[in-house]
Write a protein that binds this DNA or RNA. Sequence first.
DNA 1: TGCCAGCTTCCATCATGCGGAAAAAGAAAT
DNA 2: ATTTCTTTTTCCGCATGATGGAAGCTGGCA
Lengths: 251, 251
Amino acid sequence: MPVEQRAAGVQSVQRALDILEVAEAAGGGCSISAMAAATGLPLPTIHRLVQTLTARGYLRQLPDRRYCLGSRLVPLGAGANALLGERAAPVLRELADGLGESANLAVLAGERAEYVAQAPGVYSMRTFTEVGRRVPLYCTGVGKALLSALGDDEARAILRRSTLSTHTATTIVELDALLDELAAIRARGYAFDEGEMEVGVRCVAMPVSVPGMAPMALSVSGPAVRMSDDLTGRAAPALVRACAALATALT
Amino acid sequence: MPVEQRAAGVQSVQRALDILEVAEAAGGGCSISAMAAATGLPLPTIHRLVQTLTARGYLRQLPDRRYCLGSRLVPLGAGANALLGERAAPVLRELADGLGESANLAVLAGERAEYVAQAPGVYSMRTFTEVGRRVPLYCTGVGKALLSALGDDEARAILRRSTLSTHTATTIVELDALLDELAAIRARGYAFDEGEMEVGVRCVAMPVSVPGMAPMALSVSGPAVRMSDDLTGRAAPALVRACAALATALT
DNA sequence: TGCCAGCTTCCATCATGCGGAAAAAGAAAT
DNA sequence: ATTTCTTTTTCCGCATGATGGAAGCTGGCA
């Protein structure tokens, strides 16, 4: 028995999940010995677990004998996404009704933000976000909120890998400027999008962090003509309450 | 020990995966006893495994004590998707170069088709599909190909739940007509999209079935003015070859 | 309040997963 | 072609960790 008491649970399942997560972190592919190094487990143990996961399609063996995430995870991920949206719907609706503008929920999917739920605002001219749509992180409210919730190092690494292209006159494309922006968001608690992705769209976004869950962000967005400073001022406390409600609904 | 020898592997991991898949199939939420019934395992065993999966975010416990898929699956699903696309890229490129028109790969994600890889055609006017975009099943080439690969019952159930809205003059919106179409696709081996989603876009799509993987579909699409009967005729055997190549590349 | 169904905890049992060691299969160097 | 080294795979006896029957608990319902 190890000197310290690890988190309770079924040992081999814990280890299998560790392996999945190592494979995820590795991205391109991961050898059995690399997994052993990453998890601290002996090779035969890894091998046995990997066999099981591969047989079920949760891992895939590449021609060079390394392993990567398997496609059986795709429908599971999609299912989890759909459920998230379902649970969040009432919270979003209340937020949208209270402020009059569309409310959106996004999760971090890979290196983009994916909208998983949306409640339309009350006006006929409003922003419309398609559930399932993925948008860049650096030039959207939810994206910047998600980045701010990650560590500074991780955010920097993602931004380095991204192509920072100019969508509008206000898009921030300098790495340093973006990092400053993230620091400001962390200090303030929420992010603005001043038409950085699409001209005339203003957005207030807040990171939602629920322990043990993928990072999420909640936002309210609408035409800049209606998204006055007054409205964004009222949006902030409403978002705080909605985040708390979400945390409760999803826990 | 059960009378018959089940597939080899680590028992508790197998059971944990069974539970995830039961939760996926249940969709909305699944009680512990329902899982026990579905898997044939005793309650305490299920309970212990579910605890472990919940602690890691792979399941979530709802307020009514039932369980559903957890959000830790979202990034894993996204990662698996990205890898799929990476492996498929060379096959798509060859297909696109051979025919001159854009080649696309989509997987079944929930009840929509999600593009996971794309290779652009050689002409400046061509269809452009964004990787990560999700499109309806009933009015797209890849979607219909995916539906045809599912059972008739499953396809019917999905179509019933979908809103069949008219995108263009050729969109098929009657359930019976769609089921006939699926039967024709199964007989022919591939699907056509005659501008059903977007006017002037013609597409040939073929289901790709790799054992133990989520259903996928491969398509070639381009402007109707270039997608002559002659070209679609040549596309069919090219798709067959590409499907075989994909199956090899992904196995 | 009392009943009942479903969930959770307990714990003795032993089947199951464990991991050291050695064989096998590749990869790299000679 | 042969050797050497690395990495993966198989083997197997041991004891750890998972198992599931039974008992206790909780929350919903009448």
